[in-house]
Amino acid sequence: MKKIIDAHIHLDQYKEEELTAIFQEASLLEAIVSVSFDLQSCKKNLSLSKAHSKVKPAFGFHPEQPLPSESQLQTLVAWIEKNRYDMAAIGEVGLPYYLRKQKKNGSFSLNKYIELLETFIVLAKKWEKPIVLHAVYEDAPIVCDLLEKHSLSKAHFHWFKGDPKTIERMIQNGYFISVTPDVVYEKEIQDLVRVYPMERLMVETDGPWPFEGPFKGIMTSPLMIHQSIETIAALKKASIEDTYLKILVNTKKFYRI
Results as ranks from 00 to 15, higher is better:
A31V: 00
L116Y: 07
L73K: 14
V184N: 04
I32C: 06
I257M: 10
N45G: 10
A238H: 13
L192T: 09
S69D: 12
E70G: 08
M170Q: 11
Y196S: 10
K103R: 11
W159L: 09
V143A: 04
L117H: 01
K253G: 01
R194W: 04
A234I: 14
P210Q: 05
F215P: 04
R194K: 15
E18C: 12
S178G: 12
A58Y: 00
S107I: 07
L248F: 07
Q24A: 15
E241K: 14
T205A: 05
V35C: 00
A7Q: 05
D206S: 02
L152D: 01
K15A: 15
F61I: 09
D139L: 06
E186P: 04
Y255M: 01
G91K: 02
Y255S: 01
E115N: 14
I177Q: 12
E186C: 08
M219Y: 12
E230N: 13
H156S: 07
G207C: 09
K103G: 00
M219C: 12
I80W: 15
P214D: 04
K82S: 14
K149W: 00
Y97M: 07
D145W: 02
Q227W: 11
D163I: 03
D38M: 04
F254E: 02
R194G: 05
L235E: 09
V193K: 12
G174N: 05
Q65W: 03
I9W: 00
A234M: 13
F59I: 13
Y244M: 03
E81I: 15
A238C: 12
D139P: 01
K216R: 13
A140N: 02
V55M: 03
K216Q: 10
E241P: 11
F61E: 10
G174T: 04
V249H: 10
T231R: 15
G213D: 03
T75H: 09
C144A: 14
K50T: 09
Y137N: 13
K216W: 02
M202S: 10
L99M: 10
L19C: 09
E138G: 02
I121L: 09
T20Y: 11
K54H: 06
I142M: 09
S151W: 11
K161V: 12
Q24P: 11
K161P: 07
P208F: 08
D139V: 04
W79P: 08
L95H: 07
D145S: 10
L46P: 02
S34Y: 07
F215R: 00
I171L: 01
E230A: 15
Y98R: 08
L76C: 06
L48G: 01
